[in-house]
Deep mutational scan, measured.
Amino acid sequence: MASQGTKRSYEQMETDGERQNATEIRASVGKMIDGIGRFYIQMCTELKLSDYEGRLIQNSLTIERMVLSAFDERRNKYLEEHPSAGKDPKKTGGPIYKRVDRKWMRELVLYDKEEIRRIWRQANNGDDATAGLTHMMIWHSNLNDTTYQRTRALVRTGMDPRMCSLMQGSTLPRRSGAAGAAVKGVGTMVMELIRMIKRGINDRNFWRGENGRKTRSAYERMCNILKGKFQTAAQRAMMDQVRESRNPGNAEIEDLIFLARSALILRGSVAHKSCLPACVYGPAVASGYDFEKEGYSLVGIDPFKLLQNSQVYSLIRPNENPAHKSQLVWMACNSAAFEDLRVLSFIRGTKVSPRGKLSTRGVQIASNENMDAMESSTLELRSRYWAIRTRSGGNTNQQRASAGQISVQPAFSVQRNLPFDKPTIMAAFTGNTEGRTSDMRAEIIRMMEGAKPEEMSFQGRGVFELSDERAANPIVPSFDMSNEGSYFFGDNAEEYDN
């Protein structure tokens, strides 16, 4: 993207840094990872977990959730003011799984939030270390993106479920800051804005008074975040219109849905970061690795190297396929839920299948599930090659597409044709070009129609051997075009429920 120079890199967003050079960025990201790792080690000690239990991804998720809940100030305040039966607002906890007599047992633990905050700050040299908290939120978000298709949420806001490739980060909490905003897809931002506008339509006082002023500035800020994701002048001009509207209503909703559809071809720039579970960072720190000293990046080879040398386990339900569970977590670790499966298959070195073909449910185990038949197995999170994460949407291309997802959002900077089903997408653009945004709409449609099938995206960008740390010898991959490109292809993934 041309304006790259004016933006802070995501590592800076990730670490609240002012302008830093590459070495400083690597050190501050490393410091953040160190903090998460030290916190995780301490929690495993508190909970008396064995090494194996500490490497269980379900335990990692519970521990991450506990610290996120302990620092969720708004919710904590709300819980104190609106006490609900049987919930102690000062405590947080969740299921911890232990191996007892050759069987997995679930144990519900409860801790004072104050105590968890103390352990977290102690692991982070006394700081609140917001960057580390956001990092864990993005890992949870990436896992949700890989596990669930947001059909219901899309339909509720009037969008087409086939636009799911635009929904990265749709389950990120509001408090995820600049680093969170960077990884949100165009569809996620559109959905947040539509929800806001709908509230304004239904509630006369939404934009009024002292609160209304705050609401208005939040609305304009979200519009600017979305505008910054678009790469064409016409899309940005249309966002200006939406932002400046005196009284946002149905016309703005129409414009936003139009823009979301246009992003299936004229893709937005959305950041991709490899955020790993805390149970990967903990053992690495415990083994003596100093992330701050060595430096770390979320968008280069580092996460690949770390996963190459990590042992992570997962509980497996009786009829689940461990290899499929591994694929789910591998995609989440690489922030690749909406990437082209052919690119992923090449990088991973084994075939990556669409969601609907995987015999696996989510990673988390519900409290009512029976533990008797639970097994555990090693997650295979290694890769054959590594590639640089991208934040450009890439230019655009036609490809055989599917009944489910009709476009992709690249996660890796790797040369390819970008699949999208042009006739299906263009069919949504018939007729409606009147109104105050008509010239911009016409211009956007013209650009979409001009998108050429034979153009290559990320020209000359390749993948790298894991021994090639400096990215000196790019390998331009070859793809098996007979395979499906979309992950949520004609899909039956479970729906995400809060």
Score class of each variant (00 low, 15 high):
residue 174 R to D: 05
residue 467 S to Y: 03
residue 13 M to E: 08
residue 448 M to D: 07
residue 311 Q to H: 07
residue 385 Y to M: 13
residue 202 N to C: 08
residue 467 S to V: 13
residue 361 R to D: 03
residue 381 L to R: 02
residue 329 V to K: 01
residue 184 K to G: 11
residue 453 P to T: 11
residue 417 N to V: 09
residue 201 I to E: 03
residue 315 L to W: 06
residue 114 E to G: 05
residue 208 R to L: 04
residue 206 F to V: 12
residue 483 N to V: 00
residue 285 V to R: 02
residue 168 Q to F: 04
residue 27 A to W: 02
residue 155 V to G: 09
residue 208 R to T: 02
residue 274 S to Y: 10
residue 479 F to A: 09
residue 419 P to N: 02
residue 145 D to F: 07
residue 303 P to F: 04
residue 494 E to R: 04
residue 71 F to A: 10
residue 273 K to A: 03
residue 316 I to P: 02
residue 427 A to N: 13
residue 71 F to H: 10
residue 108 L to I: 09
residue 410 P to K: 01
residue 6 T to H: 02
residue 227 K to Q: 13
residue 68 L to C: 09
residue 496 Y to G: 11
residue 91 K to A: 01
residue 216 R to F: 09
residue 482 S to G: 00
residue 259 L to A: 14
residue 114 E to H: 04
residue 460 G to Y: 00
residue 223 C to R: 10
residue 419 P to I: 10
residue 185 G to N: 06
residue 390 T to I: 08
residue 79 L to K: 03
residue 416 R to C: 12
residue 262 S to K: 02
residue 295 G to F: 09
residue 192 E to Y: 12
residue 141 S to R: 02
residue 77 K to E: 01
residue 421 D to P: 00
residue 36 I to M: 14
residue 306 L to Y: 07
residue 351 K to I: 07
residue 75 R to K: 15
residue 443 E to C: 03
residue 207 W to A: 01
residue 398 Q to K: 15
residue 165 S to N: 15
residue 14 E to N: 09
residue 393 G to Y: 02
residue 348 R to T: 12
residue 282 G to F: 11
residue 438 S to V: 11
residue 275 C to S: 14
residue 110 L to R: 08
residue 400 R to K: 15
residue 21 N to L: 12
residue 493 A to C: 04
residue 487 Y to S: 01
residue 487 Y to K: 12
residue 59 N to I: 01
residue 238 M to Q: 14
residue 110 L to G: 03
residue 480 D to Y: 13
residue 318 P to I: 11
residue 189 M to K: 04
residue 346 F to G: 08
residue 308 Q to F: 09
residue 443 E to R: 03
residue 50 S to R: 09
residue 228 G to C: 13
residue 421 D to I: 12
residue 200 G to T: 14
residue 320 E to C: 07
residue 161 P to L: 04
residue 81 E to A: 03
residue 447 M to L: 14
residue 78 Y to R: 05
residue 375 E to L: 14
residue 459 Q to K: 14
residue 357 K to A: 05
residue 273 K to Y: 04
residue 252 E to M: 06
residue 373 A to V: 12
residue 285 V to C: 15
residue 448 M to I: 14
residue 282 G to V: 07
residue 322 P to L: 05
residue 411 A to K: 00
residue 486 S to H: 02
residue 88 D to T: 00
residue 466 L to Y: 15
residue 5 G to S: 15
residue 76 N to Q: 13
residue 493 A to T: 14
residue 262 S to F: 09
residue 308 Q to R: 02
residue 222 M to K: 08
residue 192 E to F: 04
residue 414 V to L: 15
residue 418 L to M: 15
residue 25 I to H: 02
residue 401 A to D: 00
residue 497 D to V: 15
residue 461 R to G: 07
residue 332 A to C: 03
residue 438 S to F: 05
residue 261 R to A: 04
residue 97 Y to A: 07
residue 188 T to V: 03
residue 472 A to N: 06
residue 122 Q to M: 09
residue 493 A to S: 03
residue 406 I to C: 14
residue 354 P to W: 00
residue 106 R to Y: 09
residue 384 R to N: 13
residue 307 L to M: 14
residue 350 T to F: 14
residue 351 K to E: 11
residue 493 A to N: 12
residue 477 P to N: 01
residue 257 I to H: 07
residue 402 S to I: 01
residue 330 W to L: 08
